[in-house]
Design a protein around this nucleic acid. Sequence first.
DNA 1: ACCTGAACACCGTTCAAGT
DNA 2: ACCTGAACACCGTTCAAGT
Lengths: 181, 181
Amino acid sequence: MRADAQRNRESILKAARTMVGKHGTEASLRGIARDAGVGLGTLYRHFPNRDELLQEILRSNFDELAEKARILVSSENPLEALENWMDEVAASTSEFQGLAASMIEKRMDPQSPLHASCSSLKQSGDALVRRAQQAKRLRADIDGADIISLVSAIAWLADLEGLKPTRRKRLLNLLMEGLKE
Amino acid sequence: MRADAQRNRESILKAARTMVGKHGTEASLRGIARDAGVGLGTLYRHFPNRDELLQEILRSNFDELAEKARILVSSENPLEALENWMDEVAASTSEFQGLAASMIEKRMDPQSPLHASCSSLKQSGDALVRRAQQAKRLRADIDGADIISLVSAIAWLADLEGLKPTRRKRLLNLLMEGLKE
DNA sequence: ACCTGAACACCGTTCAAGT
DNA sequence: ACCTGAACACCGTTCAAGT
């Protein structure tokens, strides 16, 4: 990649991060290009669609969550481990306005670059789910997909209602009661 | 109201109903005016903002739900009554794409005409909640607002993931496990 | 190779001009 | 009283023309 192209790419990502942080996942792409000091076509050259740009912004978040799952999978209390992880996912997802909705919407669409991130997130969840089920602490008819759906729903509420972390945890707690074996 | 104005109002509502049914609560107002065979300004004269139009479309739905609650409140099984009502709300809400989100978003905003509908919905829920709590079947730390939030979250999932009614009911069931006393 | 911005087809909202 | 549509300020997306 040419040096100027590299510079542009970075400006776009920087502008996008602050813009999405402020206005959510539906932030204006025009506005991002403007803030980045770059032509609109340049943004499209680097990121052919909105999801491609989002994916890049969210990559580190997803990586962190996968890492957390890897650590928690060897925890001594599998149910608590799952619940902790779910809270992390909810917190991380409600960080950007509209992200919960984007995730659920793109989950079925294999074309979207968010699809890959979501399914790897689902896999991280699957491992924690299996452990909790083996310990007979979690209902057997649950899988990672259920977990992502439910946690997204909580993140969505937290996002829209501006829930404080404590209330978010309470909702999660309520939900876990229903998932216990 | 002048006869032609009355006619226009009805054309707008008719067009809006089919448009919102097809494209969700964010359907184009321009498109609605076009389909109604009416100038864009006429739509705005009758409905100064989107919520005012939505409220009119949804009024009958809300009324039905209030009526259902009134009947269910004297049911012999209060917990089951609450669950049935919640399923009705979820079904009715996921009928229009984006409605769950609109309801939660506008719930805090006393300006919005949807606010009134939501708070009367909350009151319907409150009665059912109290009954279930008096029968010691429902946790004491729950109120109608929690119920609306949770049911909206389920409706939102049902909407976005295209859930079949059976899966929606399963989610609701899971949730109720957590709410039981 | 890469960048630019005009062009196109859309929005929501307002308001002067018309009947 | 009521209706109309042009005007304004925005979108996302594409692509010919420029370096």
